[in-house]
Design a protein around this nucleic acid. Structure first.
Lengths: 203, 203
DNA sequence: GGTAAAATTTGACAGTGTCAAGATTGATTA
DNA sequence: TAATCAATCTTGACACTGTCAAATTTTACC
């Protein structure tokens, strides 16, 4: 399971990284409720409390996983927004589709990233916020650009922050309803996204 | 705490109702992670395993709470949609605001109602579905009406189901981002809702 | 009044996160 | 090189959780 072939080391060497990696695997394989520190430690081949020397508590570990998720999401959003050889409308549509499909492909990770577990009552790590806030901010940057290009349906004075909150709310809401099992017809994701794009574009 | 003054009864009389009621209180007071069957039983004044004769397991109890929540939400939606003395646009706006404010006022209940806990992997009770599906369906009914009245921005052929999925996704997403602690400025809820309304209306 | 069913209890088990104290190792310094 | 110290890891323990099985108590019914 480990990639380092060295055996029987009291000091693991890079336990922190390994814990994050394996915990991410467990999350993807079996969902958040199957991620326990004890199972994680057993799978890594270390005692129950060893993780506590690298993470303050379970919450800190989860924040670490989410942190990587936000970096991934941020990078993906940049790619969508700057996709070459496409019209602005197509890139807007691409963003919506890619976002929802990210959540669809990594349901448990997405659930963790945006769940109240790591955000409520000061639970979020400083490192997590340092990864998430730029990702949030980028939504506003993209929206401001779309507004400048007169892409979005709206009357009155434009506000990039408010518009991005609505747009982000929409993709987030669709993603959540999908992965939480409320929308049962997962097959129609693309149609829903297409319809959303159409409702937001000015005609 | 109890409304029935009769004391020292081996048979509680209406334990099921009491459990649902008190569990709902605990949820509202301290959040879902503070709702445990043991604490609930202690608070009701009954042994740890007594609840198991009225609910198959903890999941069934949570479904029961959510069930009541959906009936409440459904009723509220009907009121918004049929509000007297208001234009259709105003009623559309009212629906958006009321929906988000329902989540804001009952964050933990809303979280439970739409969380994967009770929906994923066949966890949902038949009674829960019987309460939730009509609520979901009503979103489509409202949307169909709004489309007939040419209220919503869109090009091409209209589809009430798709449009309702997008609209519902939006209010759901805004609600979730708010109550999960991602949107830190809870004070601007009404502005966000107003902006959402404006983006969806045809101009 | 006796019996069956319903409701509730106690005991037990496996699992969880986390703390405290001790054991082991690697790095630093004298 | 030898000694020291901090980093790292382990064992033991605690309180808490959901849930099962078996025994107990009460109510309802024939």
């Amino acid at each position: 399971m480990k990639n380092t072939p060295e055996k029987s080391k009291y000091h693991h060497g890079d336990l922190r990284t390994t814990l994050l990696h394996v915990a991410g695997e467990m999350l993807k394989e079996s969902g958040i409720e199957e991620v326990s520190l004890r199972k994680l430690a057993a799978r890594v081949g270390v005692s129950r409390t060893a993780p506590y020397h690298h993470f303050k508590d379970k919450n800190a570990l989860l924040c670490g996983i989410a942190e990587a998720g936000f970096k991934q999401l941020h990078a993906m959003n940049k790619r969508s927004f700057n996709a070459e050889g496409r019209s602005t409308k197509e890139k807007f549509s691409l963003f919506i589709h890619e976002y929802v499909n990210f959540a669809k492909s990594n349901p448990d990770l997405y659930e963790l990233m945006f769940g109240r577990t790591i955000w409520k009552q000061e639970n979020s790590t400083q490192e997590l916020r340092a990864a998430a806030y730029p990702c949030f901010q980028y939504q506003v940057t993209m929206t401001r650009e779309w507004q400048k290009l007169k892409l979005l349906n709206h009357s009155g004075e434009e506000n990039a922050l408010r518009a991005s909150q609505v747009l982000w709310g929409t993709v987030h809401g669709i993603a959540k309803l999908l992965i939480d099992g409320i929308y049962t017809d997962v097959a129609h994701v693309e149609e829903i996204c297409d319809y959303a794009v159409d409702m937001f574009l000015v005609h």
